[in-house]
Write a protein that binds this DNA or RNA. Structure first.
Length: 893
RNA sequence: GCCCGGGUGGCGGAAUGGCAGACGCUGAGGACUUAAAAUCCUCCGGGGAUUUUUCCUCAUGUGGGUUCGACUCCCACCCCGGGCACCA
């Protein structure tokens, strides 16, 4: 017998798997013979389907053990499911468009396509070296026209429905990427997700958006259906990101009836409607505010506008301090260019010189401009209620605004009925129906719900009830309405770079914006652009690309020169795996409806919002297009921990990567796979340790030696099946083996505790070693059964080694034809058990009894135990707790 | 500030209300060997008593609680990691 030689074994079996097309999924729809696509070659034998997927990689840099951990987890799941009789779809592809390719190409004077395709080749080589069970026929690469054509097709469908639209807006610009970023790509309060040391700048640029906000409510609601299948924290992060606030809009009239000349601003449209309802008065300027606490409106001591609110400039006109105010406003607008600064800046603001009228009580409220009010959120204007909002409190404190109290803590009302507070507001507390002539000044902020006070008719109401009633009243009287506001913004997808999907739109001087007709898709990326990495879109410098005839009138026109965010590519790629060669449509619905939703998706937590939110959005759009029959693409999500070295995640820039290929060359793929599964539970971060890898390597050698030693004598094709009585030694081995099988099955199927599954198998291996010499008292058939169980249980994790061992045991069929072994509860049963004896909950002894022994018998034995007897001597037995085969607890006093 | 995780030996980690520390790593000792590597075996949380054996006791971030019994459930707090954050 030779030594364990992973290099030889792994190459041998990878070749066999490929020859036998072991990992190709079976047909996805009923065989009708009409499907030409090459992926339908195998017959579906009515197995249940299982779609397991790891997030597709961006092919750049080195493929390191961090990637490998991700793919190993997915591969174990895929292999277990195949052994359990599922028709498994387990594909792989490349997220091949993107900025790093373009930057690398500029640096190395090559083409992004060359750079990308070389990386893909290398990635393929490494993944194949690890023996992952992918259906390579379905491989996709998002930078190929066959793929990105459908990005364009989807874009056109969204354009038709108004989901894709273009607008000029303030966007995030990364000076290093030289392109616009989506809100989701701005991290750590204002930094670029690619350049974490680079502040994002605000720029006003015209760009394309996808209306994710149209699905805000659904994206939020459907999170409920993901509970249990997705990690709580991912759901929480998405919920947070969508940020739903239920509240109300209220219109405050501006005192002095400033004529509104034009009402172009979006926020003023609703006002017109409302005014139409009660149109006795002349046109009055009104300010629309949003609040979640309409119940505090009697405590409003100012209206504060965002500096760039459209009304701000207009209101300043004609005020005594106009010139001075305008200067301040200009200054304030400039100072908020950097998004990161907004969050940390000190509160600043100024009084405009004008007043608004509180529609609830007619109170005159000064109108201010404040730097902390965001135009993008709500209506860009707020009412300041200093007593009940921390920011307003701070602002009021700085500028000397009053802080009237309008909500009282529930407790304080009840408890102060008797206590004598020495403040001058004693009457206020003694009654719940205080009227508005009394105002107390807050000395600290109270933001919780309570009981309304000093709020006219609404005094005495609980906050929740007050909010409902006041919003309803505002609506009825025409100066407000209930309103739901989301934090989520539309997804800006325009990128001023080359290596992405061209946006299929043409601008004609006569016909305006004209979509590229479907028949003209794909709009191909020009082959040899000038790439500088600076300034404008590279596509704009290519006259052949830019100059085009208008599809409508045939006249001269220009193409859109921006490309799409690469997150578009990854938003629907997993659908394409179901029908990768389709040239008539992105996919055939029947195929997708067979495989979807994805049963198990596995990837890093980094994509908790970006990719996973966009994918959910895309799914809902496709559903509304009638292409698919489900609303959520991913049923279960697993976020694996990172592989770290020296406490930080492996990355090229940190210089701490352990290359996957190096690992495979030194120890073999199976050891690498086993180690990443054994070293930590899959959801936790894993600290790379060279010493621990040695342990996994030793274990596989130990298994190999153990089976090699016995294989010849127990081969399935050679050994005689001896009859006769089963020996105690045999019983013990079979018992341990089946107990292990029970737990390993459970760990694989329900808990994903691969580390403890491996520990169990190690224990079994140790037990077999301890039973040596096996030739004595263990018949070949029993020996074989135990050794086969070890082989089969390891198979999903160390597939090459297991195939080799399986063959050594005399099998010629290949493990891929073998089902997961059946657990035999009879064999796992213990004859004799060691029971713990406790006295008052503390362990005082142990007794060995036959399994199933009843309480009375155990109690008798326990009382005879020296340790136990000592602790119950002279005491009365109050109670006896008995758990069969496990424990006896004598409660003595 | 809000929302998620997490806190167990020298280390990675086990333990689905029932013997805390499985399994592995490191370390120590032994066997084999001329020697080394490999392999195999034994020991390895703290304190105390007894010193061949065993027993007692403390211990799962801290403090309470529920329970015959708590790493596990409940309450409060501390610390670490992550996400969001003038979002009205």
């Amino acid at each position: 017998m030779g030594d364990y030689n992973p290099q030889a074994i792994e190459a041998k079996w990878q070749k066999r798997w490929e020859e036998n097309r072991v990992f190709e999924s079976e047909a996805d729809v009923e065989e009708v013979g009409s499907h030409q696509s090459t992926v339908d070659s195998k017959k579906n034998k009515k197995k249940p389907k299982y779609y397991v997927l790891e997030m597709l990689p961006y092919p750049s840099g080195t493929l390191h053990m961090g990637h490998m951990r991700n793919y190993t987890i997915g591969d174990v799941v895929a292999r277990v499911k195949r052994m359990r009789g599922f028709n498994v779809l387990h594909p792989m592809g490349w997220d091949a468009f993107g900025l790093p390719a373009e930057n690398a190409a500029i640096k190395n004077h090559t083409h992004p396509r060359t750079w990308t395709n070389n990386n893909i080749k290398e990635f393929q080589r490494v993944l194949r070296r690890f023996g992952f069970s992918y259906d390579w026929r379905r491989e996709i690469s998002t930078c190929e026209p066959e793929y990105y054509k459908w990005n364009q097709w989807f874009f056109l469908r969204m354009l038709e429905r108004g989901i894709a639209y273009k607008k000029k807006s303030r966007v995030n610009w990364c000076p290093k990427c030289c392109t616009v970023l989506a809100n989701e790509q701005v991290v750590n309060g204002g930094y670029c997700w690619r350049h974490e040391d680079t502040l994002v700048e605000a720029r006003d640029i015209e760009q394309w958006f996808l209306k994710t906000t149209a699905y805000a409510e659904q994206l939020l609601d459907d999170l409920k259906t993901l509970e249990g299948g997705w990690p709580d924290r991912v759901i929480a992060m998405q919920r947070n990101w969508i940020g739903k606030s239920v509240g109300a809009k209220v219109w405050f009239e501006v005192e002095g009836a400033v004529a509104s000349l034009q009402s172009t601003a979006d926020s003023l449209k609703k006002r017109d409607n409302a005014e139409a309802q009660s149109s006795q008065e002349a046109e009055r300027e009104k300010i629309e505010i949003f609040t979640t606490r309409i119940d505090t409106i009697y405590g409003a001591s100012a209206i504060i506008l965002a500096p760039n609110h459209p009304l701000a400039t207009r209101l300043l006109a004609g005020t005594p301090e106009q010139a001075k105010s305008e200067a301040k406003l200009t200054l304030m607008k400039q100072s908020s260019v950097k998004i990161a600064d907004i969050a940390t800046a000190e509160k600043d603001g100024f009084f405009t010189g004008r007043y608004a009228l509180n529609p609830f009580n007619g109170a005159k409220v000064p109108i201010w401009v404040g730097n902390f009010v965001l135009l993008e959120y709500g209506t860009g204007a707020i009412m300041a209620v200093p007593a009940h909002d921390e920011r307003d409190f701070e602002f009021a404190a700085k500028f000397g605004l009053p802080k009237p109290v309008v909500v009282k803590k529930v407790d304080s009302l009840q408890s102060t009925a008797h206590s004598q507070e020495k403040k001058d507001n004693a009457e206020a507390q003694s009654s719940q129906s205080v009227e508005g002539d009394y105002v107390s000044e807050a000395d600290e902020v109270f933001t919780e719900y309570g009981i309304s006070v000093n709020s006219g008719l609404y005094s005495g109401l609980e906050s929740a009830a007050a909010i409902d009633l006041m919003a309803a009243d505002a609506q009825a009287k025409g100066f407000g309405q209930k309103e739901v506001v989301f934090r989520l913004r539309d997804w800006g997808i325009s990128r001023q770079r080359y290596w992405g999907t061209p946006i299929p739109v043409i601008y004609c001087p006569k016909d305006g914006m004209v979509p590229v007709p479907d028949a003209d898709l794909p709009v191909l990326l020009p082959a040899n652009p000038k790439l500088t990495g600076e300034g404008e879109s590279p596509l704009a410098t290519d006259p052949e690309f830019v100059n085009v005839k208008c599809p409508k009138c045939g006249g001269d026109a220009r193409r859109e020169t921006d490309t799409m965010d690469t997150f578009v590519d990854s938003s629907w790629y997993f659908y394409r795996y179901c029908d990768p060669c389709n040239d008539k449509a992105p996919f055939e619905s029947a195929k997708v409806n067979y495989w979807f939703p994805i049963d198990q998706y596995i990837g890093g937590i980094t994509h908790a919002i970006l990719h996973l939110l966009y994918s959910r959005f895309w799914c809902k759009v496709m559903r509304d297009l009638g292409m698919i029959n489900h609303s959520e693409p991913i049923q279960r999500l697993f976020t694996q921990g990172m592989v770290q070295k020296g406490g930080v995640a492996m990355s090229k820039s940190k210089g701490n990567v352990v290359g996957a290929i190096d690992m495979a060359e030194k120890y073999g793929a199976d050891t690498g796979r086993l180690y990443t599964l054994f070293a930590a539970p899959p959801e936790k971060d894993l600290e790379w340790s060279e010493e621990s890898i040695e342990g996994s390597w030793r274990f596989l050698n130990r298994v190999y030696r153990m089976i090699a030693k016995h294989a010849d004598k127990v081969r399935v094709d050679g050994s005689p099946e001896s009859g006769g009585e089963i020996s105690e030694k045999e019983k013990g081995l079979l018992r341990k083996a089946h107990q292990t099988l029970r737990r390993v099955t459970q760990d694989f199927e329900t808990r994903w505790h691969f580390n403890s599954a491996i520990a169990q198998i190690m224990e079994l291996t140790n037990a077999i070693y301890a039973a040596e010499p096996l030739d004595e008292g263990v018949r070949p058939a029993v020996r074989r059964e135990v050794l086969e169980l070890v082989t089969l249980m390891l198979a999903p994790m160390t597939p090459h080694l297991s195939e080799e061992l399986w063959e050594m045991l005399g099998h010629t069929n290949g493990l891929w034809t073998v089902s997961w072994p059946a657990f035999n509860p009879e064999l796992a049963k213990e004859d004799e058990v060691e029971m713990v004896v406790q006295v008052s909950g503390r362990v005082r002894g142990k007794v060995k009894v036959a399994a199933g022994t009843e309480q009375e018998e155990v109690l008798k034995l326990a009382q005879a135990e020296a340790g136990v007897a000592g602790h119950i001597a002279g005491k009365r037995i109050v109670k006896v707790i008995f758990v069969k085969d496990k424990l006896l607890n004598i409660v003595a006093a």
